[in-house]
Write a protein that binds this DNA or RNA. Structure first.
Lengths: 138, 138
DNA sequence: TTCTTTATTGAAAATCATTTTCAATAATTA
DNA sequence: TAATTATTGAAAATGATTTTCAATAAAGAA
């Protein structure tokens, strides 16, 4: 998976490849931190100075629609985006520096069936997110 | 725990008990659904017609500060509030009707220490949320 | 390549949620 | 009961996001 792959996916879905979109895609693709639209704008303008904030919003919207980026929920706010993981993955966030990692391999079947029994709910999905300190920050 | 308890807590923390706050507290305390400030406003105005939306925001802020309500994160948005659980609890949300339940008794120690080993992170907290259909909706 | 079509652009305006300001009011306590 | 001061709602201000629009540029056709 590379930034070019994202551009191809946009193209395959009938969207055009532009300098503005390249700048946004490159920026978000290569970031290890979740970025707000405004942060994407600041960073991407280093690659394409004329980029407008509106185009950042519009491009993020399309990338989210194609499941190439996903929104990150944090106590301080939920407007930031990160390159999406592949398949069923969960997030691990550094509380100090904001670095984001994915992990997989959670087995919550025992838990969910126990909760299903107790509550009478039929459980369809789960969100799991871990917070802590990354190897650099701890 | 009753709505009166919330009012007492507000009072104990130096806040005054007013008709406006009663209406907000009663509304949020007794709701089985997460409510946005605007939804709280609409509902609470049935109890106290003169209630302003600004007061809803201010009251929710204080209730959150006292850990009596908490924000609910959902795919569609993160502005809604619900009466907080006691101690370490997680949320279970009905995707159909929006009903919210708490559950406890998750044991993620095995998972977190495995992830800690793999990633080098020191894990401090976790968020877990289940989505599904409640007994009425399934 | 050049032309044509039409998606995309950035700026400005509009919208929506939330916060701040402010003078009037009402809860507390002395 | 009076004095103090937190609280109120309305209006204004702010900040994030969305919409509008005319100009531009990407993509496919000729």
């Amino acid at each position: 998976m590379s930034a070019e792959t994202w551009l191809e996916q946009l193209h395959d879905n009938g969207y055009r490849i532009t300098a503005a979109r390249r700048a946004v895609v490159d920026t978000v693709f290569s970031s290890t931190h979740a970025l707000t639209p405004s942060e994407v704008h600041d960073a991407a303008r280093k690659k394409y100075r004329a980029l407008g904030l509106v185009t950042v919003y519009r491009t993020l919207e399309k990338l989210e629609e194609l499941h190439l980026v996903q929104r990150v929920h944090q106590p301080m706010g939920c407007q930031a985006f990160i390159a999406a993981g592949i398949g069923h993955q969960h997030l691990l966030l550094c509380q100090q520096c904001g670095r984001v990692e994915f992990f997989e391999g959670d087995d919550l079947d025992a838990l969910t069936s126990s909760i299903a029994k107790k509550t009478g709910y039929q459980i369809k999905e789960h969100w799991l997110q871990l917070f802590g300190l990354c190897s650099d920050c701890k």
